[in-house]
């Protein structure tokens, strides 16, 4: 009986979970940008905020594992859905005009998603893995002034800055469709709110990645 099937055994509910994890990451990105923005205006404010996020037990041992799971779930479920979708059309059309009925962003979420995944690898290599080593292997938790210096050091390399900028272009393209699509997946669609959500989605998809790009370029030029 269909009613006894597990939650994630329904294609629609897999998409529902995908949408929720995506919206969670959207909120996280906003928080990340807010803290990063302080680095442009005050190194002390950036250091104290980063130190709080890096040492607060609630953030470290509750929110960070939830975030890690959210990222892992969103990526792995995205790949699972992509495989299922490809299997649904084993023979492609010889001649097709998908641009007549849908946007490039909506059709290529897997490409932009994989590019973001590769960027996350670089980002973890740059910041998260050294952070884990410092705290959990070297046992250094009290250095409150290192965060701003580490940030500046990473954005010294023009190639790294270019990679960051390119990655945020992919993030923007991903968000352009993903943000508003998540609301459709959870069934939130009506004549009053949907136009607003679509506008908000476009604004968010441009402003947030652009903010990260500006911060990276600012620190590169400031050195």
């Amino acid at each position: 009986m269909a009613i006894n099937k597990g939650f994630l055994n329904f294609s629609i509910l897999r998409k529902f979970a995908m949408a929720l994890s995506g919206l969670f990451l959207v909120i996280f990105l906003l928080q990340h940008l807010t803290i990063n923005l302080t680095s442009v205006f005050s190194s002390d404010a950036f250091n104290s905020l980063s130190h709080f996020m890096g040492t607060n037990p609630l953030v470290q041992f509750l929110l960070q594992p939830i975030l890690a799971f959210g990222v892992f779930f969103h990526l792995s479920m995205g790949l699972v859905l992509e495989i299922k979708n490809r299997n649904a059309r084993p023979i492609k059309y010889a001649y097709s005009k998908p641009e007549e009925n849908s946007s490039w962003m909506s059709r290529n979420m897997i490409i932009t998603g994989v590019m973001i995944m590769l960027f996350l690898g670089l980002h973890f290599y740059d910041f998260w893995f050294p952070e884990l080593k410092l705290k959990f292997i070297d046992g250094i938790w009290n250095n409150e002034t290192r965060y701003f210096i580490e940030l500046q050091h990473k954005f010294h390399d023009p190639i790294r800055v270019a990679l960051y900028v390119l990655s945020f272009v992919f993030l923007s393209l991903h968000l352009m469709h993903g943000f508003q699509s998540a609301f459709q997946s959870i069934g939130f669609r009506n004549k009053s709110y949907t136009p607003f959500i679509k506008k908000l989605s476009s604004i968010y998809a441009i402003v947030v990645p652009f903010g990260f790009v500006c911060i990276a370029i600012y620190h590169f030029l400031a050195q």
Partner: peptide, 28 residues
């Protein structure tokens, strides 16, 4: 309730893909 559960279950069993909300279906 039984209707939506059964129909979506059968849709999945038939091997149709997931909805990516591209909107192509509505336009065509």
């Amino acid at each position: 309730k039984e209707r939506v559960l059964s129909m979506v279950d059968q849709m999945d069993t038939e091997g149709f893909g997931n909805c990516s909300n591209t909107g192509a279906c509505e336009i065509e």
